[in-house]
Design a binder for these strands. Structure first.
Lengths: 188, 188
DNA sequence: ATTTTCATTGAATCTATATTCAATATAATG
DNA sequence: CATTATATTGAATATAGATTCAATGAAAAT
């Protein structure tokens, strides 16, 4: 394995470790030394891979943003099916793939006040609410979703999903809720 | 006005200022000096009123916990009416009474990982989810609420409410959603 | 085999902020 | 008024934790 590959591997290890710690303890409570110890490597070496703690967060949030980008040119799958499937997959992933799960939660955390400005900006730039609103509107036109401000509906939907994911992170092993409960927010 | 009253007033002023700042910038990003400047008073004087920044947070969370205590011996008001009314009032308050609004959000923040341990414990001790679950169960027995794990339903409901409140805090002036949208999570 | 480059460490800095403190002003008390 | 108690300030201190750095080891290149 070439040196560049080695470095890439190590970088990933740091990223994954940091992701887990950020989600489990929060960004500010996670010390560089904690991440280093968990990887494991010396504290100083962390700065060989990432300029700063904030850069590390930024790298994660950028990955999250790239992974989360809403697919604009969705084929004509009916909105109610789209959201239902999305939830099913998200919950399934969350049980099996810690990465997806953690990333979802980190993106939510990163959007909040008090997080480093640049990371926050990037997390907020993934405009899931606006994008979903379009599809919700389509569902309203189809007469499947309830009427009302589609952006507001979208916000309620995502607030719910985010909140549930965080609860699941907090009490691990918790059951996932019935997808229909959440779809009820949207459905007529 | 006696001195003790004066002191009490000042204490309240600090608490209200801190509450607002904690909610708007987050706990860690709010420096004691920021709170002091906003009250206004000197930084040093803050410690005449509160032992530490953490004590200040703790005082707020204790107030929140006291205010939030779920009323056990609720008269026989039907569950669906109870939750509907609760939401209506919460949203109405949030438009007019910044205090209630901010406090609700602070309690949510305080429950999260990364917040000072003691404050977190107190915030988590207000077991809204468990308490509501009982009432949800009653609603299920009445055939008004959908079947399923009442605690999980309760969690979904509160995750939604918390998430919506936070969105509202972030984009002020935002409309409040239709209470029925949220009730749809619970209702059959 | 020698040199150059990169990985790694642990200890030494640097910095931001919470916290303390000595000094002063202001108000209450006798 | 004199004394005592409390409020207030701004500057000094303490500390946690991010960041830097000089030294060392290990791998690649020549």
């Amino acid at each position: 394995m070439t040196r560049k590959e080695q470095k890439e591997e190590r970088r990933k290890a740091i990223l994954m470790t940091a992701l887990q710690l950020f989600v489990n303890r929060g960004y500010y409570d996670t010390k560089i030394a904690d991440i280093a110890a968990a990887v494991p490597m010396s504290t100083g070496l962390m700065f060989h891979y990432f300029e700063s703690k904030e850069e590390l967060l930024l790298a994660l949030v950028k990955m999250g943003a790239a992974a989360t980008k809403f697919d604009d040119k969705m084929p004509d799958i009916p909105p109610e099916v789209y959201f239902t499937e999305f939830l099913k997959r998200l919950f399934a992933f969350s049980k099996n793939e810690p990465w997806v799960f953690h990333m979802f939660i980190l993106m939510g955390q990163a959007r909040r006040v008090g997080m480093p400005e640049e990371a926050r900006k990037i997390a907020l730039s993934v405009n899931t609410i606006e994008e979903s609103a379009k599809m919700i509107q389509k569902g309203q036109e189809n007469g499947v979703f309830r009427p009302g401000d589609s952006k507001l509906l979208s916000m309620c939907f995502w607030a719910t999903v985010q909140g549930i994911m965080e609860e699941m992170a907090m009490h691990e092993g918790m059951d996932t809720p019935d997808v229909e409960w959440i779809m009820a927010i949207l459905k007529k």
